[in-house]
Design a protein around this nucleic acid. Structure first.
Lengths: 204, 204, 204, 204
DNA sequence: ACTCACGGGACAGCCCGTTCTT
DNA sequence: AAGAACGGGCTGTCCCGTGAGT
């Protein structure tokens, strides 16, 4: 569908991005050489530099695509959940259960850590990405409060910050150990936290 | 004191480690060149390679030292706090308020993200470091339960995982934005979580 | 007139030559990339390689055109000058006063210096160009001698060599300094030289 | 003698310069690759880049050395010639008869033509070199005038400009043809010019 | 007649590491 | 203990040229 509407060069460009994404995500910007990209795509120098002016531009395109994938896999089909608390828990569950949209862990966090020195472009992109995510989660809380499902004294921004921080941190720990333990712990504890935030304290 | 007991070579070695630490922490293993280390130390090749067999060995020594610094700044003087919950909150507060022991963010998380691909040595070291940290925090919870201060149904491992994950995740967000907002949110929310874990529900 | 007689492809070919000429003249063969030519013409690879088999052929065509321009600007309307000595002085004055037909200095000398190593084709072309020029100037002297205007003992070849050498050398010096001083000196001294070559020694 | 006073690195540096000089002189800056230099010296990348920060710095060092060689071969032992006119003629004869100090023609003129676009550093160096040369030749004329050997109305600067321009131009023509004809013509004509500049008109 | 897409090689420069010297 | 000198491989980028497509 989407591919059909693209010119040949556009398809190649897209293929480069998708095949380079896990490399940058795993190895970082400095650790991923253009030769790695060539090997992964089967192209030669000329074939890649036609589509991207340089490594930085490629990395930016890769991050933009990875971000889009991350947003999609974490939000698709989550609107239909009715209750606010349930919706937040669904967001958490989705994050915990769905494997990273790009091999090598969450591209948001990886890029945040990788680009916190230098590379202002990527840094700006990733900052905006996290800001958007925090805003979206915060809005879920706000809606829950407005709907009377969540206690009035809940602070949406703080709840959002904590959920996102714990999830990302938990993902790092889980990846390091190669199991789901830390992420599972985070899911459980965040779940309990959300339950205690219900308006009337009734537990389901 | 410690320096006085060292031979000249030992002092140079130590100086290399301390001056290289922020470089590796900020730029990552691949992004930090030996030339960067030479520039920072004012030494020449021979002066560094006398003390370290190669870049990997230097990075390992740097991480070991950075880890020691991190542990020290995060635990020094925290034993005297009497109450278990208070001790956990002190751990959190210390993490939030104390700047990173090495410029460039938490070396534990940075290395975890940087070395999750390849570099088995560093990966092993950082895994052990997180395991120790989780164990130490978990023991604080266990002691609290044993002392009747924390509810019986509290799961020490899960609490520890969540605290550490949220703190590390919060640090990334805060560093990215250049302010303390996310970390502050995490501190508040973790604090509330701990309060609700008190044995009899009495709030101080 | 001339353009009207050309096919579209021929006009494009001509446009490429004229827009590439200053690039080759200023940057030299090795220093002028095909990309530079593309940028200057607004064409793509295929659009240039349709008209020229390769960089060398383009350079040869550029030189041939530049040479034609040089000859034209240096000879146009100089036939009507009656006296032989005056005609030679007009040749000199024209060279000194007329800006280079192609930006970047005299294409003859530039190519001579640029192509004296390798590039046999260009070398041959430029050698012939200088030979023609020397012959033409020499013939002016010969005619002057035959007409009794110039002393019998004047050596046409030597006079021609010296005039051309001094003019080209003077142009290099002037271009380097960004003023007309050296060229002016050359014009003056060559003028005096020619005056002393008059048959009867009468000064005008 | 001089070599003995140099450190090993200094000798290598000097060897690089001397072996790279003909390459730059013949092929120009853009046309001479660092690989050419490596091939000529037998060194590897690391061995050259230790002594020169980059190609431009090497080219500057090469030009400085080439210039020194040129000045030496063109001035050595010319002081003892007594008469001013004879001294000027000796300068010319030396230039005509002595082969280029660096293979590939006069490095002054070659660099002047090669670097007239971009490369401000080299351009400045070569401008100063020509200025010095013109000044030195001009002083010879001035001394001749002061000593009463050369006519009062001789313009030292113009004479110097013309001599240098004609010699350099003649060298280009001669190199192109592969014979000494043009240079011989220039020598003869400049000689006659100088003779006519003698103070009392007495011809020797 | 010209653009788009790509191959493959070359270039300048940087990097890690070794050896020699002091 | 540390600096000086060098090897050789690799990186990002540019370059020239070809061929399919329009």
């Amino acid at each position: 569908l989407l591919e059909a509407t693209m010119t040949k060069g556009g398809r190649t460009r897209q293929r480069i991005i998708e095949q380079a994404a896990p490399l940058f995500n795993r190895q970082g910007f400095a650790g991923c050489s253009m030769q790695d990209v060539l090997d992964a795509t089967g192209l030669e120098k000329g074939g890649v530099y036609r589509h991207f002016a340089g490594k930085e531009e490629l990395a930016a395109a890769v991050f933009a695509w990875s971000l889009k994938q991350a947003v999609k896999t974490r939000t698709d089909g989550l609107d239909q959940v009715g209750n606010a608390v349930e919706r937040l828990k669904a967001v958490i569950r989705r994050f915990v259960e769905t494997p990273s949209p790009v091999a090598g862990g969450c591209p948001l966090l990886n890029t945040a850590v990788d680009a916190d020195d230098g590379n202002a472009t990527l840094r700006r992109l990733v900052r905006k990405a996290f800001a958007d995510w925090r805003r979206r989660v915060g809005e879920l809380v706000t809606q829950g409060v407005a709907a009377g499902e969540i206690r009035q004294d809940a602070d949406p921004a703080r709840v959002a910050d904590t959920i996102i921080a714990a999830l990302e941190g938990g993902l790092v720990l889980s990846r390091l150990d190669g199991n789901r333990e830390a992420l599972g712990s985070v899911e459980t504890m965040l779940g309990e936290m959300l339950e205690r935030m219900r308006a009337d304290g009734r537990r389901p």
